[in-house]
Design a protein around this nucleic acid. Structure first.
Lengths: 249, 249
DNA sequence: CGACAAGTTGACGCACGTCAAGGCCGGTGG
DNA sequence: CCACCGGCCTTGACGTGCGTCAACTTGTCG
């Protein structure tokens, strides 16, 4: 706690709060050791902060340690599309790994804590730790699967199905990483976020969410509270989401 | 050409027809040698054939050598969403590399020639050829970028913008891999494909495409002929697509 | 010749967008 | 203390983009 040049990490990899979670696979000793050296620091951001900006160059990669965020793109006239949400264990900034130029932005939905890695050393990781390299590919293709599913939703589901699907999806993911306890099931988003995720207008989103609320599936009180996750899945024509044994970098 | 048990490959990696194209990066000798052993065979399929089926398990990975195809998902009631198109140089079947269970289907739009790889040996590639491993990750994140862009389109662009964007996008990609010569610019899709890509009905898609045709941007004659690529980009509010120096596996 | 796949067009209806107004709440400053 | 404000949610009225239904065309393959 002295006036050191190098700040101490609050969460060294050896005591990573995420790793014990059972959704993540076990690490080998030496992999853990390498990741510890790969980690450059921690970044804490407030709700509303833009972590990555479309069009900018980022020298870093991040792993989410805690909190919620979302990835999005903008059209020049301001229309916004939210692409996906980021939660603990997710890797951000991987895209454009060659050019380093971001094709999307990332914003914090709640206070977030991020592990910071140097993009330059990624090749070193690939050279010396094929297991970790494989994990990174795995994480990227998991992200792709989620995008596929979102695209199916936005393209082919009705407004009610889409909304139910989104909320059930966020609940499922959040449960896996203990962002949500069994008791309370609060998702920290506004209706504007839902609208921009589903490709709907704000007004219509509101009316759709009220329908879900009137069926006692959710409640809205500055954020979304899930009352009946199974009911949501039924409305959404949920067809399963198989993702156990994720790796964590 | 005798009655051998092992069929000769028509396109051994050493004489890969794709590699000379300038969109692909150069290969090291030993990388090429490994890929040659990694390649298990070639698969030729006719137009309309389902190469991969959602829900099935596939022991193979494929690289497209020639032809067009598309990836899609279905809802239980038959609604279809096309996720993306596959062209020469694209890797298919990467998703679900752990479970091997496909989350989407792939169908040929034209006769296709595919390189077949064994999924089981993927770890070997990661262990011995970090450069190739890095390439695979790069390919996966490029796919993700395309999906982001498609999601933006379907969620936030109007029908006319979406259609123009899609066609300009396919043209751009096809040009890069010489699927389309400078002279003719024919894309082998039906209006049903366009509809299922854009999340529109067939009828409305038809009316939208006729608008593009009446502006002399495209012509439709059993497949789409692009007349004015720049005009399409203007209508689509095209914002660039930066993808040079792709790797090829 | 019929059968079928793909494209075209018009009539009509609904899901969703847009506009507009107002309510609730916490924060800030007089 | 109240006044004011901005973020967020809510609701109604109205318009439109897109879906649905249905009929017809054209080309291709037997």
């Amino acid at each position: 706690m002295g006036p050191q040049a190098i700040p101490t990490l609050q969460y060294p990899c050896e005591h990573c709060p995420l790793r014990p979670l059972k959704v993540f696979r076990n690490f080998e000793e030496q992999e853990l050791a390498f990741v510890a050296t790969f980690k450059k620091g921690e970044l804490a951001v407030e709700k509303g902060v833009t972590v990555l900006l479309e069009g900018s160059h980022s020298a870093h990669l991040y792993t989410v340690l805690s909190g919620w965020g979302f990835r999005y793109k903008l059209l020049s006239d301001g229309r916004r599309q939210i692409l996906n949400y980021v939660m603990p264990g997710d890797l951000i900034g991987l895209q454009g790994s060659l050019t380093g130029e971001m094709q999307h932005s990332v914003e914090a939905l709640s206070p977030m804590l991020l592990c910071v890695f140097e993009r330059d050393r990624l090749m070193e990781l690939y050279r010396n730790h094929p297991g970790l390299a494989y994990d990174i590919t795995w994480i990227a293709s998991r992200e792709e699967q989620m995008l596929d599913e979102n695209l199916l939703s936005v393209g082919r589901r009705t407004a009610l199905e889409r909304a139910a699907y989104l909320i059930a999806f966020l609940l499922e993911r959040a449960r896996g990483v203990s962002l949500i306890s069994a008791g309370s099931a609060e998702i920290p988003i506004t209706q504007q976020h839902v609208a921009d995720t589903l490709g709907l207008s704000l007004v219509h989103t509101n009316k759709t969410l009220r329908k879900l609320a009137s069926r006692k599936l959710i409640a809205w009180n500055g954020g979304c509270t899930v009352l009946d996750g199974e009911g949501l899945k039924r409305v959404a024509r949920w067809e399963g989401l198989s993702m156990q044994g994720r790796p964590l970098v």
